[in-house]
Structure formats: C-alpha cells, structure tokens
C-alpha cells in the first residue's frame, strides 16, 4: 500500500478516490406500506383525541387544540414521514460491499463489506405481501442491517446476488 497513509502513522484526512454515493431507490410502494403501518398508531391517536375533547369540559379552544395537535401528528407521521423517508433512502449493492444511506433528520451512511456477510434473509409481512414488497436483511457476525420495502423481485434478485458474492471466501477465510 502506498499513498498518503503509507505504513506510518497518519492523522490527517487521508486522500481518497472519490466513490459514488449510493443511488438505488426503494420500491415506490414503500410509501404506501409505511403509511398503512403508521395508521396502526395514528388512527387510535385521532380517536383518542376526539374522545378526549368530547369528554373533557375545558375551554373550547383547548379542546380544538388537542384535536388539531393529534391531526398534525397523525398526518406528519403517516403521510409526510413516509414520503420523506422514502426520498432519503438510497442503497447500492456492489461486488465488494453494500452501501446504504438513509435518515429523515440524521443522515446515516453505512457500508458492509461483502466478505463479512454471513447470510441473507428476505422478510415479508402480511402487509408487504399484499403490496409485493419485501425487506432484505443482511446478517454479519456483528449484527444485521436492513434494506426495507424493496420490490419483491428486486429483493429476491439481490438476495441471490449477495448470497453468491458473499460465498466467495476471504483471502484466508477469517471472517
């Protein structure tokens, strides 16, 4: 190895060959799936707020405020949230690594070397099955990372590809 790092201690920012940011998108139906998922708490929240505003004999503006807040939280969580989340999710599966970038507020970029992946799992729920989406779970010795809500056929193709690539042993087979 040569270059800025050499074999000696180097503490400045190492020079790096620029590599593309991940570019793959999740399934378009991910938004629908997350919205439906969010309804499981957003609807009870709305109902609870309505019931509370009915039952409570406080000032009218305060009761209206409760309902308005519940509507804001529910629409934010069930509609705006999934949209933004979907827009921010990017992934790439390259021969040598899996590259992910996601996060609505805090942006997280994660790289998992292909040689570390021990097995791949395609996870479906009842909801995702009706939408033909699936979650790809990549297991390493140190835990799992997920690519959520992919098109089902994309997930299956990625699973096969990663399983094939991950099988290629490391130089000395120490995972």
């Amino acid at each position: 190895m040569t270059g800025a790092l050499g074999d000696t201690a180097c503490r400045s920012a190492p020079e790096l060959a620029p590599r593309a940011e991940p570019s793959g998108l999740l399934s378009g139906r991910a938004r629908t799936q997350w919205t439906l998922d969010a309804l499981s708490w957003a609807l009870p929240l709305l109902i609870a707020a309505l019931v509370a505003s009915r039952a409570w004999d406080g000032p009218g503006w305060a009761r209206a405020l409760i309902v308005a807040a519940a509507i804001a939280i529910a629409t934010g969580g069930a509609i705006a949230g999934p949209q933004l989340r979907w827009r921010r999710w990017r992934y790439d599966v390259r021969d040598e690594e899996v590259d992910l970038r996601h996060g609505m507020v805090t942006v997280v970029r994660t790289v998992v070397p292909m040689a570390r992946i021990q097995h791949v799992e395609v996870r479906r729920t009842f909801l995702s099955q009706t939408l033909s989406t699936a979650t790809l779970v990549l297991h390493t010795a140190a835990g799992a990372v997920e690519i959520p809500a992919l098109d089902e056929h994309v997930a299956a193709a990625l699973r096969d590809r990663i399983a094939e690539l991950a099988r290629t042993p490391d130089a000395d087979d120490d995972r």
Binding site: G103, V105, T106, V107, V108, R109, T110, V111, V112, P113, R116, T140, A141, A142, G143, V145
Partner: peptide
C-alpha cells in the same frame, strides 16, 4: 471490520462535524 457508518445530525452538518462508528468481531 464488520461494518462502519458515518452519521450527521442536522446540527453536526451545520457545524461541519460528523460521527463515525465501526463494528468489529
């Protein structure tokens, strides 16, 4: 390394800072 990730909260992004995490073993 088993995995590594780079995280930026909006406040960190404004200050030009970031957090790096690595996973081993």
């Amino acid at each position: 390394l088993q995995a590594e990730s780079l995280t930026r909260t909006p406040l960190q992004a404004r200050a030009g800072l970031a957090t790096l995490e690595i996973a081993v073993g």
